[in-house]
């Protein structure tokens, strides 16, 4: 079980996270939705400390990491337990797909090359990238790069996988392959926090949806509850707006 308590983050005068409390159960796939600039990405980045939160703590399997006075050893410890998939992939440009996945296993987990290779193969196969393991990021399409990035995060066997708008930087026709990949790993029992604007996908893949607005969690429930019976006025507005984008302009 993972518990986030009173997470706060402020950029100058702009309060992005205003005391977020969130309990994540093992196997939860939590979709985080909300308008732009409401701290969805910041929440993920604060969880693995790419952004240093002003306040708050994270408890993973009984070990609590308090944001203040965290030693660099603890930061590494925390990051080892969380995996991150970025909007813009951020693959290592000078390394092949295979080396990208092996990197963390060798450098951080101190696995032997052979063992790392074996794991990297399995993970790349899972995301359907086996034919491209010797390609460099510049040879790959955005969707392929993102699948490698997912394999890279999964290879570390994180207790919590953070996906930060994994399809927002992709051409529309490439979104599908990445969503399929995420759906597959969701099925295999990974605990995930997914920030996405693909409402239909969030509704299908997650077992719990959170609506974030102005640094607060306004809604927290099953996809059905949040999408069909939102309690809050802001949520209703947002979801109506989103639905309008999906619906046809007129029906014959």
């Amino acid at each position: 079980m993972i518990e986030i308590k009173d997470m706060k983050k402020q950029f100058h005068d702009n309060v992005v996270l205003d005391g977020i409390d969130l309990t994540i159960h093992k196997g939860d796939v939590i979709g985080i939705i909300g308008p732009s600039g409401t701290g969805k990405s910041t929440l993920l980045r604060c969880i693995n400390r790419l952004e240093v939160p002003d306040e708050g703590s994270i408890t993973i399997d009984g070990h609590t990491y308090t944001s203040k006075a965290m030693k660099s050893r603890e930061v590494i410890e925390l990051r080892k337990q969380t995996g991150m998939v970025f909007q813009r992939f951020h693959l290592f440009e000078k390394k092949t797909a295979l080396e990208n996945v092996m990197e963390g296993l060798i450098v951080v987990q101190k696995k032997s090359r052979e063992e790392a290779r074996q794991i990297a193969f399995e993970e790349l196969e899972r995301v359907g990238m086996l034919p491209w393991i010797n390609h460099y990021p510049k040879h790959l399409s955005g969707g392929q790069q993102q699948r490698v990035a997912i394999a890279r995060a999964l290879a570390m066997k994180p207790k919590l996988l953070l996906l930060d708008e994994p399809t927002s930087a992709l051409d529309p026709e490439l979104v599908g392959e990445v969503l399929d990949t995420i759906r597959n790993i969701a099925k295999s029992g990974y605990t995930m926090l997914l920030v996405s604007h693909e409402m239909e996908f969030v509704r299908k893949v997650s077992n719990r949806v959170i609506f974030l607005d102005n640094g607060h969690i306004l809604e927290d429930g099953t996809p059905r509850e949040v999408f069909e019976h939102p309690k809050n006025e802001r949520t209703r507005e947002f979801i109506t707006k989103m639905n309008r984008l999906v619906e046809a302009d007129y029906v014959i």
Binding site: N48, L50, S72, I76, R79, K80, T82, G83, M84, F86, R88, H90, L91, F92, E93, K94, E103, G104, V107, V108, A149, R152, A153, M156
Partner: peptide, 22 residues
């Protein structure tokens, strides 16, 4: 690109490891 350094950090690499490897 800063993103690659963040990716290295998110895997649990220290700055020196990221410096040397990435």
């Amino acid at each position: 690109d800063r993103g690659q350094i963040e990716a290295a950090n998110s895997l649990g690499m220290t700055y020196l490891q990221a410096l040397r490897r990435i």
